[in-house]
Amino acid sequence: MAEPMGFFTDTSVCIGCKACETACKAWNQLPAKEGGHPPMSGDSYDNTVRLSGEDWRHVKFIEQFSEDRSAGRWLMMSDVCKHCVNAPCLEVCPTGAIIRTEFDTVVIQTDACNGCRLCITACPFGVIDVNPVSKTAEKCTLCYDRLQVGMQPACAQACPTASIQFGPIAQLKATATARLSQLQAQGEKQASLYGADDKMLGGLNSFYLLLDEPGVYGLPVDPKMPTRNLFWGSVSSVAAAVVLGVVGLFGFRERRAVDESDADA
């Protein structure tokens, strides 16, 4: 089996150019959002707004300025599927359309997907959505087809500032750790890695260097497996069923009692 591969996205060097978005569309031949003319969102320079079945890369823009402009920064981050080691979408998919590949990436087989959209609800990062053309759930495949012939994913190849880096996970983690130390030494105290260790869903095969809290970037602080609720959810259901059964059976007894008292009368 091939080595686990993934992305390290260093948001501190992202210039928000959206080359990743377009390169992704060009390689994967994805349709333009709303035929190419969505309304201007007004949310900084972001008009893609969110990841979806046709936007597998999404550059986020976060403007942070004090009122007097004495402090200010413009954070940018190219968001993508996290290719979680413990992938919630893969776990819940009822058709088996979502698979884990030999590169440890998570891929939706669009020919198997029937569009139930459960994976959308499972993803803690809001990555997946239905592609309006294929009408199946779609997301980043980490350019599975390119990986199989030893090519880089289209976005990572296009990224002008190497904010998106592709490679073996182990190597990327070393790069990320070194970059984090460099930034912290430069006084970026808030800089941190997101999803680089295996505490988060067993590790994200697409992990990030952030310059602020995850929430600022629209990322959950502690993403969880949806199946965490399976046990107690089932218990609540079973308990309710038992209660209802008991109520029903008691109902017969009470009815008999009433009948008997009627008979007595």
């Binding site: 377009t22 060009a26 333009a32 035929g35 190419g36 003319h37 969505p38 008009n47 893609t48």
Partner: peptide, 13 residues
């Protein structure tokens, strides 16, 4: 004329 690019900045501001 490119829908991909147009969608990224659709309106004059």
């Amino acid at each position: 004329w490119s829908p991909w690019l147009s969608a990224l900045q659709p309106e004059l501001f």
